[in-house]
Computed example of a mutant assay.
Amino acid sequence: MQYVNIELDKPRRIRFDTNALCDAEEALGVGIGAMMNQQMGFRAIRALLWAGLRWEDRGLTLERTGRLMQQFLENGGGFDALAEKVTSALLASGLFKTQGDEGNGEAEAAT
């Protein structure tokens, strides 16, 4: 399973599997398909980042994830860069293939 590296309070890796996506959907009260079809704001990025980081840090909370995002932004990272990391991890998961997708199933993770 592919992941995307991100520098927050420490080097972390965002990775999505079905459980992570279910966690994000539950936190937001909306399906991932609906999220992907609209511009995602802070709330959606926070929930997705939280869900994507929990595989390595099960004690991570939404509130703590918000503080990590704030720290990222205060240290010069932009919201677009943060959203791009989350989106790259979603695509690297391989969970969003369509019937016409071809290839060997390997995704390239962004760093």
Rank of each mutant, 00 (worst) to 15 (best):
S88F: 08
V30L: 13
F79A: 13
E7T: 09
T61A: 01
N104T: 15
E7M: 09
G41N: 14
A109L: 05
G52C: 07
L62D: 01
S93H: 08
D101M: 15
A110P: 00
A27M: 09
G33W: 10
G105C: 11
R15K: 14
R58S: 12
E63W: 04
A47Q: 07
R12E: 13
F16E: 07
Q39I: 09
Q38H: 10
R12A: 14
R58E: 14
D80K: 15
A89D: 03
M40C: 13
D23F: 06
M35D: 02
E102R: 15
F42D: 08
L48P: 03
N75H: 03
L95N: 11
D80N: 15
Q70Y: 01
M1Q: 06
G76C: 01
R58C: 04
M36C: 08
E108N: 01
Q39C: 02
W50A: 01
Y3A: 12
F96E: 12
A51H: 05
G59H: 10
E74Y: 10
N37W: 11
D101V: 12
N37S: 15
A83I: 00
D101P: 06
E108S: 02
W55A: 02
I14S: 07
A44I: 08
G33V: 11
A92H: 07
E7D: 08
D9K: 01
N104Y: 12
Q99Y: 06
I32P: 04
L8V: 05
M36S: 10
R54N: 03
N104R: 14
G94I: 10
K97N: 12
D57C: 08
D57S: 14
A89Q: 02
V86L: 09
F16C: 07
K10I: 07
D57W: 08
R12T: 10
G31M: 05
E84L: 09
G59E: 14
E63M: 10
D17L: 09
C22Y: 12
E106C: 11
L21E: 13
F16D: 07
L60D: 04
A81V: 00
E106G: 10
N5Y: 11
G41Y: 03
D23K: 13
V86R: 10
N37V: 13
R43H: 04
N37M: 15
A89N: 03
R43L: 06
L62E: 04
N5V: 10
T98W: 01
G41R: 13
R67P: 00
A83L: 07
A83G: 10
A47N: 06
E63Y: 08
G31Q: 10
T65R: 04
T65P: 01
E7W: 05
